[in-house]
Nucleic acid binder design. Structure first.
Lengths: 349, 349
DNA sequence: CTGAAAGCGCTTACAG
DNA sequence: CTGAAAGCGCTTACAG
């Protein structure tokens, strides 16, 4: 009967070991090890006998034991915010591909934006002795990883810098991207531009806000405080913020969205409005070009973030004595229509 | 200097072990083990001394060694098609959450729809001695997993049944869902309906085609062969198939799309057409409601697929002697506009 | 070309 | 309440 397993089975359902293979083939343990690992220096005839025993017993090497002896697990750990978030899909895949090219497997998990869960997960990965760790921070204090890094766990942070420790980080140019996106709206004639972003404790949120303020200052435009709103990406919160800056005495004619969840909510909100409002969002998203109007975005390359971070990680594992670095990847403005809507009230001449 | 690691470091960067902790605390190895694992029967004073030593040395238990002795790795392996595909995000997360509730971590990877890569990855996971394996099949012959299953690796297939072995599978009701979707178009007055699906070796593709044919037969409608096209989901291929059935002497007035990649391509193709064509797609996708018209879909619950599969897996790990089962989850038709477009040429009275 | 012994860092089974 | 010995399944270092 397939898959029937007595709960009393002590381990691995009584799998054959190298010892069993050796006994059956009438050779020593080390010879089996040589054949299994394709090491040279075994008579073809001996190889054949060992292989027959392996076949007959259904032997498969226990890498769990191998790892204990070798010291390296050939495993990379990845802590991200949410495995279900489409933004992390390409990043996840990119990390996997680089790891795979180095013969390593990937253990990953979601922090759910909870610093405690991030910590618990990252330390569980360290206990499994992953060779390297890639972390998209949820918390802002990563001193808990210091002993691990000192003990040799190569660690690279992605998307946001580590908190209170000096470590590698690979991220997009949030400041420059937001600045360029807002400048694009200014170039289209907008003078009253709103900013709706993520919570202020998130590094990318404040960087993008900084970019917004810089672009406004570059153009000599004042920022009225009701035009700026940071908070959760919950649709209710974003909708409320939008309504606040779109109504009242000094309504904005354009909005910059701090990330793609905000952008999508804004598309819904703006669609219900009588007058057209321009929109540029940080982060590209699938189907942005299919909406009417298409959504103008500041795109970041999530796959590149993962690739560059994992490359860095394997450089460290190869023994490179690199000082911690901040690697910033450029963003790209993609005009699709929503960001090119002119202001309803023409700019003062 | 942080993260500096000599390539000559033998293992784990000289991490302290329980033996080191025992020496420093002046106790036996087993006492350290008791404290680390929170076992009862240790004097509070001894506990304190051990904890101080742990703290001072920066000790963290090596779960890699623990696993070797305990026989269970508290790890679930997941083989899916593509970590970057949004469809698998919620499934991935659901598997993670159930695993987490059981104290297990998740190792996952992409088969890239390549049967050889699926096999290589699944067997690598078995070599790591994952307790259980969840596989979204790329290949159609899974006999290579028989020895592993026999050896006690709990295995559950998702989305498509295993090939040539008898094993658990959790999937959506593709046949019923497609039948309902096509019946919806028939109910709207359509008589000439096309079907564009994935490659014929993929189980869900043929099941959905079967559902299409059943719905047409239910309504007493004939199917002209140019109306049916299976193949890759490459936009060119799908666009070509669409153009073929939308032009010519007997053009269709509605199309049923076999999965969401096909659906999205069809949205693009149909948007360029002079006359309106109805569209229903299998699989829901983000922003389907924001398009104009909204896209009518037959939705499946990807998170539920992952949850049910992983629950089943842990039932087996708990010792349940279950016979292999096929668990089918229902789909849900969500009308949003594109599927309610009437046929341009009214149905014959 | 081949293999016996020691050891990776833990837990198990047992004795005191 | 505490600890010494054996062992999980491999690889390493060495001897023949």
């Amino acid at each position: 009967m397939p898959q029937t397993r007595r709960p009393s089975d002590p381990r691995y359902g009584n799998r054959p070991t190298m010892k069993d293979v050796a006994a059956r083939a009438g050779v020593g343990l080390k010879t089996v090890s040589r054949v299994v690992n394709g090491e040279a220096g075994v008579t073809p005839d001996t190889v054949r006998r060992v292989q027959e025993a392996i076949e007959a017993l259904g032997f498969r090497r226990n890498d769990s034991a191998r790892v204990l002896r070798k010291g390296r697990t050939a495993t990379v750990g990845l802590v991200l915010e949410d495995l279900a978030d489409p933004f992390y899909g390409p990043l996840n895949r990119a990390v996997e591909e680089v790891a795979r090219a180095h013969g390593a497997l990937l253990i990953n998990g979601s922090s759910a934006e909870d610093p405690d869960r991030e910590r618990e997960l990252a330390l569980a990965l360290c206990a499994r002795r992953v060779d390297g760790l890639i972390v998209i921070p949820a918390g802002d204090d990563h001193r808990y990883l210091e002993p691990e890094i000192r003990a040799g766990v190569a660690t690279v942070f992605v998307d946001r810098p580590a908190g209170r420790i000096d470590a590698d980080v690979v991220l997009s140019d949030s400041f420059g991207g937001a600045r360029a996106g807002v400048a694009h709206l200014v170039g289209g004639g907008h003078r009253r531009i709103g900013f709706i972003g993520d919570q202020p404790h998130i590094h990318t949120a404040t960087e993008r806000l900084r970019g917004y303020r810089a672009a406004m200052a570059d153009a000599g435009l004042a920022v009225a405080e009701p035009w700026v709103s940071l908070g959760t990406t919950a649709p209710d919160r974003v909708g409320e913020a939008a309504r606040a800056m779109l109504t009242g005495p000094d309504p904005v004619t354009a909005v910059f969205a701090g990330n793609n969840r905000v952008t999508v909510t804004l598309v819904r909100v703006l669609a219900r409005l009588p007058r057209p409002v321009a929109l540029v969002g940080f982060d590209d998203f699938e189907l942005a070009d299919l909406l009417r109007p298409g959504v103008t975005v500041v795109a970041q390359d999530a796959a590149a973030l993962g690739r560059v971070a994992t490359d860095r990680l394997f450089q460290r594992l190869a023994g490179a004595a690199l000082p911690p670095a901040r690697i910033e990847l450029p963003t790209r403005l993609i005009p699709r229509g929503s960001g090119e809507i002119p202001p309803e009230i023409p700019p003062a001449a």
